[in-house]
Computed example of a mutant assay.
Amino acid sequence: MHDSAYSLTEARVLYELAHAEPMETGELRGLLGLDAGYLSRILTRLEGDGLLSRERSAADARKQVVRLSEAGTTTFRTLDARSAEEIERMLGGMAESDQERLMTAMAAIRRLLGDAPGREPFVIRPPRTGDLGWAVQRHADVYSREYGWGIAFERTVAGLMGKLDFSARDAGWIAEAGGERLGCVFFEHVDDRTAKLRMLLVEPSARGLGLGRRLVEECVRHAADSGHKRITLWTRDCLVSARRIYAGLGFVLESSEKGRENGVEVVDEIWSRDL
């Protein structure tokens, strides 16, 4: 590995000991999922090279404790530096946007395979370049898959997004965790009295975390802080979770009207709340 005399597995042993030494051999075996005999042979080789030492545990003489020697620490640091250099060469030619896409994809793989240690706390931030296109695309993808709405709905969302003027009094918020976008909501200034909540979305993978409510709260707070007296929104009766959030935050159903979206029957609703 990295032009050294050691295999990937041997380097992993050095890595774990460098970050958690001293360690019982049983703990090391469980952590790496190695056969006891295979691990014993690896430890014997590394010990013969002067990279580690083994001794009986003071707490339980039946167990062995392993720790890196000074030479072992030096060898690990060399391997670690070469690994970082290799990654830098791989990523150095990528644009920053491609690096972000790569990291997001890697995080998704870990999450989908159930290997992630747990979802990172989400943050809510203003939109950046690329966020508006993402919001339109995810609205189209999610609602087409879950409700059968088609390209006409995507055009509607794109039109609403195109009306927002972030250089004036409109605003938006993106929820993310670990660099992955998880949701959004937008604020439209109608006049000095009235505002609109627009395009609330929470990714299916992030539902149940309270993210939708937090986004709506942010939009409502902004409307009140900016002097508006009333905020309205458009939704549909099939969006049960969103309607529950709106009702829980004081919105009331103002009107409803039957319609069709891509051949699918829908009920459009207008909700409002005084501020």
Rank of each mutant, 00 (worst) to 15 (best):
L68R: 01
H189T: 10
L8M: 03
Y246E: 04
L209P: 03
R77S: 06
L164H: 02
E24G: 15
E261T: 04
A223K: 06
P127F: 01
D237M: 05
E146D: 14
L209I: 08
H19N: 05
A242W: 07
G93T: 12
I109W: 00
R169D: 12
G130S: 14
T73L: 14
L164Q: 02
W149K: 07
Q99W: 00
E180S: 13
P127G: 11
E47F: 01
A135D: 01
T9N: 03
R111P: 00
M199D: 12
G248F: 06
R62Q: 08
W173D: 08
M90S: 09
S83F: 00
V267E: 13
S83T: 06
A95R: 14
A95K: 13
N262D: 15
R260N: 02
G148M: 08
A58R: 14
W234Q: 08
G179E: 07
A224F: 06
E265M: 02
I174G: 05
A81E: 15
D115V: 12
S167W: 00
R41N: 07
L79K: 09
I231D: 04
L164N: 01
E70W: 10
L215R: 10
A11W: 11
L31A: 08
S205L: 06
L32T: 13
D225M: 03
L51V: 08
G150T: 03
I109Y: 03
R181C: 03
E203W: 02
D60A: 07
R181S: 05
T156N: 06
L43K: 12
L197M: 15
G208S: 04
K163L: 13
E254V: 09
T194C: 08
A158T: 03
F187C: 04
P126G: 08
T129V: 13
V252S: 12
V142S: 03
L102W: 05
G133K: 14
A140W: 02
E203P: 01
F76P: 03
R41K: 10
L28F: 09
R221A: 12
G183P: 05
A223I: 09
R198A: 00
E254S: 03
L14I: 12
V264H: 12
A135T: 09
A116C: 01
H19Y: 00
R29V: 10
T78Q: 11
D98T: 12
E269P: 00
S83G: 01
R243N: 15
H139Q: 11
L34K: 13
T44W: 10
L91K: 05
E96P: 02
E70M: 07
D165C: 06
I124C: 14
G114P: 11
A105K: 05
D115I: 03
R214S: 14
S256L: 13
G50L: 10
L68N: 02
A168V: 11
G162A: 14
G183Q: 04
R213Y: 03
E257G: 01
K258W: 01
T44K: 15
W173C: 07
G183D: 09
L197T: 09
V185C: 09
V220H: 06
G212P: 01
E261C: 10
